[in-house]
Every structure is written in structure tokens, then in C-alpha cells.
Design a protein around this nucleic acid. Structure first.
Lengths: 187, 187
DNA sequence: GCTTTTAGCTAACTTCATTAGCCGCACCTG
DNA sequence: CAGGTGCGGCTAATGAAGTTAGCTAAAAGC
């Protein structure tokens, strides 16, 4: 039997892709094994178990999100940067609902946990956006949490099809970003 | 064998309480059966299965949240109503993380689904809050979604221990409510 | 070429959700 | 008050999913 040539990154990447397709709850070790062309127990040579797999998918998702948002903010400032960051984040969550769902409820185990590092990088991208507004130091953390709650809340509700009725969702998001922008500029 | 005197409401209520204690992912049919003093298969006399159970827990959670927020808004208007609604909602989610988590990702099956009715009631409570501001009709849906995203995002992040560093979480929430209030009053 | 490492496999175990089928308590009627 | 009936509880069994143990053979290193 020829070896499949798997490694940890390949398993985690395939797991993330599968989670996006079938939902995080539908991500099963057997399904993932099929996908990568291997029997289920072989996966345990690369990840410690399902919890470990999901944790690594979460770290991957945070890294990708941080890269995307960080890249979108490059060369922009103020309202432009805010809009780019928010739209990029929302697009990432909606296009990758499974891997983003993996990030929810993960507690970083320690300071050198890659999960924590990736989370900090993502927050840093939003912090950079806020530097384009005149915000007092004592408000900075609050403003960051506001922005995060807004983006996280909207994107997760949208990904879960939580917006029922007919008003255009893109229009709502643009409205919401403009609302935040006006509020931040008025400080 | 003496009958336990269960009914559907008792099973769903105990399931919701258990979900709050051990997390939605830890809610198992066996654990719930133990809790209500019955063997696992007996639960199936009251709910169709785990999916049905979680769906009913979600409906219960939305009803309770709608009652709580609706009650908090009674007799208040404007900024007062907004603060009361937001704080009540956040408190509900943080105190009942398991049952609120059950609501995420539930698609109402039809127009007479009690889940949909409860969801509408909760949204109505927030709609009532927005009536205290001078918002044009074409902005109403967007403002409602903004409020919902903000409250949902903050509360779920807090319930998942998503706010890492030390700044006071209560202070952040008050700040965030005041931010939304200023923005809505400035429209 | 020989040894060592290690990715993959089969077989087996455990936990859970779920179904089938039985049994007796509680009510309800005559 | 006796008999019937329905419903809530039970035991036993099935199937899916995660996980572990132990074997084998392919790759990598000497």
C-alpha cells in the first residue's frame, strides 16, 4: 500500500475545508479520513484527536483571518481602513463558516499557544484601524471590543442564516460600518 | 416502579438548565436522563430526539429572552430603554449560555414554528426600543440588525470567555451601549 | 544493504443516540 | 369496585463515531 504522504498541515487544512463544506458539527473523523484517502485511525498519527484537530483548525482560521484583514488594511487609513477591515472579516467568516466556528469557545492554553498568537494578530489588525481615529487611550479597549462585537455578531448571524426577512444584507452591513465610522469620528 | 411524572416541558426545562451548566456540547441524553431520574430511552416519550430537544430548548430560550427584554423595556423610552434592553439581553446570555447557544444555527421550519414566533417577539422588543429614536423608515431594519449584531456579538464573546485581557467587561459594555445611543440619537 | 523510524492498516473497545418491544401504573368507564 | 386501556417507564439491541493497541511495510538514515 503506497503511502498517502500526509502531514499535519495537510490533515488540518483538509479538515478546515471539510468543516466549511459540511459545517463544524458535521466534521467527523471518518469523513475527513475518506477525504484525505486514508483509514480513520491513521489520522491519529497527525493529530491527537478531534479536539486537537478542531483547535488546530481554529488556529489556522485565525491566522488566515489575521492575514486577510491585515492585508486589507495595508495602505489605508480612517474610514477606508475600517470599511476594508470589516468587509474582509465578514467575507472571510461567510466564506469559511466551518473553520471560523472552530474558533468560538477555544481558550488559549498558555501564552505561547499559537492560537493565542493568531488571535492577537487579528486583534492587532483592528487596533491598527482604530489608530486612524482620534480615540483617547482610556477608550481604546472599549472601542476595539465594540468593533469586534459588531463584526463577530453580524458575520456569525449571517453565516447561521440568522437574518430572516428580506432587507438586503450587504446594504445592512455597509450601513452598520458607516454607523460605526460616524460614531468613532465623533469622539 | 413509581412514575417520574415527567412531561415535555419538564424535560426541555431540565435540558436547558443542564446545557447552562455543562455547555451545549456536553448535553447528552444520558446525562439528562440521570438528571430527571429516568433511563435514557424514556426521554424519547417526550422529545423526538436530541435535535428536537435542542430545538425546543432554543425556543424556550428565545421566549425567556423575549420576556426578559420586553419586560425591561416596559415603561422606558429612548436611551433608558436601550440600556435596559441591552443589559437585560446580555445578562440573559451570560447567565444562560447553554440554552442561548442552542438558538444559534436553528432555521425555523415554517411560519407557525414556535421558534420563529419567539424570535420575532425578541426582535419586536428591540424594535420597540428603536421607536424611541428618530430613525427614518429605510434605516429601521439596518439599525435593528446593528443592535442585534452588537448585543449578540458581545454577549456570545463574553459567554465564550473571548475577552482576554484585563479591561473591565462591564465598563466596555456600558461604553458600547452609550456609543450606540449617541449614534442613534445623531440620526 | 541493513537498521530504524514511522505512516498506514486491521481489530477491538467505549460512549452515545436511537429503536423495538415489553410491562405495569393510573385513570376511566360500567 | 372490577376491568379495560393508554401511556410512561423499562431492558435489550443496533449503529455510528471517537479512540486505542498492536502489526506491517514503506521510507529515511547509517
Amino acid at each position: 500500500m503506497p503511502r498517502a504522504g500526509l502531514d499535519r498541515a495537510a490533515v488540518v487544512g483538509a479538515g478546515a475545508a471539510l468543516a466549511d463544506e459540511v459545517g463544524l458539527a458535521g466534521l467527523t473523523m471518518g469523513l475527513l479520513a475518506d477525504r484525505v484517502g486514508v483509514r480513520t485511525p491513521s489520522l491519529y498519527k497527525h493529530v491527537a484527536g478531534q479536539d486537537d484537530l478542531i483547535r488546530r483548525i481554529a488556529a489556522l482560521a485565525l491566522e488566515e483571518a489575521a492575514d486577510a484583514v491585515g492585508g486589507a488594511v495595508q495602505g489605508r487609513a480612517g474610514s477606508d481602513a475600517l470599511a476594508a477591515a470589516a468587509r474582509t472579516f465578514r467575507a472571510f467568516v461567510v466564506e469559511h463558516p466551518g473553520r471560523y466556528a472552530a474558533t468560538i469557545g477555544q481558550e488559549p492554553s498558555g501564552p505561547d499557544d499559537p492560537l493565542a498568537a493568531a488571535g492577537v494578530r487579528l486583534l492587532d489588525a483592528f487596533t491598527a484601524v482604530l489608530r486612524g481615529y482620534e480615540i483617547e487611550d482610556r477608550d481604546a479597549d472599549h472601542a476595539l471590543r465594540m468593533l469586534r462585537s459588531l463584526c463577530h455578531g453580524f458575520a456569525t448571524l449571517e453565516a447561521a442564516h440568522g437574518f430572516q426577512w428580506s432587507t438586503d444584507i450587504d446594504a445592512s452591513f455597509d450601513w452598520l460600518v458607516a454607523f460605526a465610522d460616524r460614531g468613532l469620528r465623533a469622539m
